[in-house]
Amino acid sequence: MIALLLRDLRLAFRAGGGFGLGLAFFLILAVLVPLGVGPDRPTLALIAPGILWVGALLACLLSLDRIFALDYEDGSLDLLATAPVPLEGVVTIKALAHWLTTGVPLVLVSPVLGLLLSLPVPAYGWLLLSLALGTPALSVIGTFGAALTVGLKRGGLLLSLLVLPLYIPTLVFGAEVVSRGAQGLAVGTPLALLAGITAGAVALLPFASAHVIRINLR
C-alpha cells in the first residue's frame, strides 16, 4: 500500500500539470474575486471565508477525474482490483494521495490568499485548521465521485454535478468556522461537526467507492 501511495505521488509530481493546476486555480480565484467585487476591504473581509472555502472546493474538483481515469485506461486499475490488497484500501490510498497532492498544498497557501482577500487576523488559524480538517473529506467524497464516473467517456461534467452537492455540508461547516473565527466568536460547534463529517466520510465512503469500482470493472 505504501508502494502504491509512493507511485501515485510520483505520478502526480512528474506527469505534468496535475499537481500545480489546483493551486494555480485557487490563486486565480483569489485574484478574480476582488477584481469582480471591488477593492473595498471590509466587503472583502466579509466574504473572504466563503470565497476561500469555495475556492478550495473547486480546486479539489479540478484534479478529481485524474484519480482513477489514467489507471482505468491503461488497465492498472484491473490489476489493483485483483491484487491481494483489499480494494477498499486501494481507494483509501488513492484518496490519501489526492489529499497530499491537492489538499495539503491548498491548506498551506491559504493564508497567503487570505492576505489577498484581507481576511481578519484572528481568522488565519481557524482557516488553516478548518481546511486541514475539511480537505480530507473533500478528497474522500471526490474519490467516490471519481469511482462512480470512471467508466464514462466524458465524465468530467457529470463528476462535478455529482460531487458538488455532496460537498455542501463540509462547505457550510468549514466556512462557518472561519467566519465565526473572523468575528471572534466561539467555533467549537462547527469545528466538531466538520471533524465529524471528515471522520465519517473517511471511515465509510471507501467501502462505497470500492463497491462502485467493482461494478464499473465488471
Binding site: 467516490f144 462512480l148 467508466g151 455529482l162 452537492p165 455532496l166 455542501i168 455540508p169 457550510v172 461547516f173 462557518e176 460547534t189 462547527p190 461537526l193 463529517i197 465512503l205 462505497a208 463497491h211 462502485v212 461494478i215 464499473n216 465488471r218
Partner: peptide, 28 residues
Amino acid sequence: DTGADLTAVLCLVGSVFAVLSRYAAMFW
C-alpha cells in the same frame, strides 16, 4: 444493470448527504 447499480449506490450515499445538508442548512 451497471446504471442501476451505480445509481442505487449514489442514491444511498446521496440520502445520507441530503440529510446532512438539511441539518447543515438549519445550522447555517
